[in-house]
Design a protein around this nucleic acid. Sequence first.
DNA 1: GTGCTTGTTGGCCA
DNA 2: GTGGCCAACAAGCA
Length: 277
Amino acid sequence: MPELAEAEFFRKRWHQAGAGKRVRVVLLHPGAKIFRGTSPAALRRALTGARLVSSEARAKQMLFRFSGGAWLGVHLGMSGELHVEAADWAVGKHDHLVLVTPRQALVFTDPRMFGRVQFHRGTEAPGWWARIAPAITSETFTVEAVAAFLRRRAKAPIKAVLLMQERFPGVGNWMADEILWRAAIHPARRAGSLSPAETRTLWRECRRVCRLALDTIAGRGDYLPPDLNAHIPKTWLFWHRWEDGGRCPRTGVPLVREEIGGRTTCWSPGRQGGVES
DNA sequence: GTGCTTGTTGGCCA
DNA sequence: GTGGCCAACAAGCA
């Protein structure tokens, strides 16, 4: 599930339940793949009895800071989720890590285990966190930076390029399709074939989709929608991209699904022109 | 049984 | 060295 806005949604969900609280750590499967590259035992030692101080989401990742210089990084992969349950809640088959507060349980669950939990200790955030590319919604995400990147990846389909986290942090499969649909650019176009005007449109829609997704999925301010996608308008491609017989919300024409850049891609014929344009 | 799945990585090849 | 492509990872679902 998790792309940019979903990461922020799940971060907020844990934060609202756990901020300021002391936690006890329960590792349900310490050998699980989600702990690859980190030490579950050290994680448990450092976090148990610590308070959740602050948290942040960047791209598709989250970082939770605890008292005593302990940090918990979370990447949800393809199927990971964070949820909040009652403290006495029954453990599910794919729950791997639980932070228990006096009243509630913060649960990390991930059936496919493409997700990842990383423990870090120190006064500063971990290096991998600092190296995440600046947000698309930030001022450093300029049209010039996008243009330069498209030149470097000139032969790759634009769909594949939008999935590259080094330049488009947080963009995943559905957001990439949403951006290209709004920008009216065919997903199979080579990145280097976009005109300056198309590049500018793409840049603008990247920013717009990220901002709108953050507003509608993660909410504004402290507000958190009850359901993840409850407030995404029906005018978005999002709601139509997976349904059989789905139609373009703008033209009414049947949508096309095909594999582009190694991923199933949904696009609107007519609106998004041809590969050669 | 088959063929998918909102992600990332490493290996292969040009 | 760089860029592009693809299989693999694991489990569930239709």
